[in-house]
């Protein structure tokens, strides 16, 4: 498992294409929203949190797809399957590498979003980090499973969002609500946060168990 994770990170270090393209895409999405909304709307915490998550979900989809596309060239995924590695471990490696990339991207994009929308920075920083982390974990878990499926079909660019987005509904609603509460300076550790954590736990376990069915032929 660590071998795969090490290899994914090394590949990224070599090409730097994944993180850089994600970063630019996230910024572009935010830019599009800024143009679409009025200045008054932008100041509302609810819009800020929505924006943050829309950018994360779409950039994340690109990232998760890259994780499997880079295995497709020279059919490396088959090479991976030759190795005595349990499919569950392959899942965790891919999941963790994606979590790493999204953390790196969000570490820049999240503060940048707050600054661009001139939202107050006086929010609970710990809370914000925690919520982003929970969102990234849940997204990556379900995303890894779906991308492993999508990448080996025709029209994978379409199939991935089609599968992933409806399944992400609970994560998205919960994350936007928690972040909104955080940005507005309200209590955020309520039911929504618990739903977010439940989503994470459920889909990390599901992905780990179901991955064997997805990778074998």
């Amino acid at each position: 498992m660590w071998a795969i994770l090490w290899k994914d990170l090394l590949l990224e270090l070599r090409t730097k294409e994944r993180v850089s393209s994600l970063f630019v895409l996230a910024l572009l999405i935010i830019l599009v929203f800024v143009f679409a909304l009025t200045p008054e709307q932008l100041k509302q915490p609810a819009f800020g949190s929505a924006l943050l998550w829309v950018a994360l979900v779409f950039a994340g989809m690109l990232s998760i797809q890259r994780a499997f596309i880079l295995e497709q060239e020279r059919n490396c995924f088959a090479g991976l399957l030759l190795c005595p590695i349990d499919p569950g471990q392959v899942f965790f490696a891919k999941f963790l590498s994606n979590v790493c990339f999204l953390i790196i991207v969000e570490a820049v994009v999240a503060p940048l979003t707050l600054a661009l929308l001139s939202l107050s920075f006086s929010v609970s920083l710990l809370g914000l980090v925690l919520v982003l982390l929970c969102g990234i974990v849940g997204f990556s878990a379900l995303g890894t499973l779906c991308a492993a499926i999508a990448v080996r079909t025709r029209a994978r660019e379409i199939i991935l969002p089609l599968m992933l987005l409806p399944l992400l509904v609970p994560l998205f609603i919960a994350a936007v609500n928690v972040t909104g509460a955080l940005l507005a300076g309200e209590a955020w550790t309520g039911t929504w946060f618990r739903i977010l954590v439940a989503f994470d736990v459920i889909f990390v376990v599901t992905g780990w168990l179901a991955f064997g069915f997805v990778v074998q032929e």
Binding site: W2, A3, I4, W6, K7, L10, L11, R14, T15, L70, E73, R74, N75, C76, A78, G79, L80, L82, C83, P84, I85
Partner: peptide, 18 residues
């Protein structure tokens, strides 16, 4: 089954660790 962006050493290190 080799990663084009890795060197021979890195490719073999990956498989060797696996």
């Amino acid at each position: 089954y080799l990663y084009p962006d890795l060197t021979p050493e890195e490719n073999l290190t990956f498989y060797g660790r696996a």
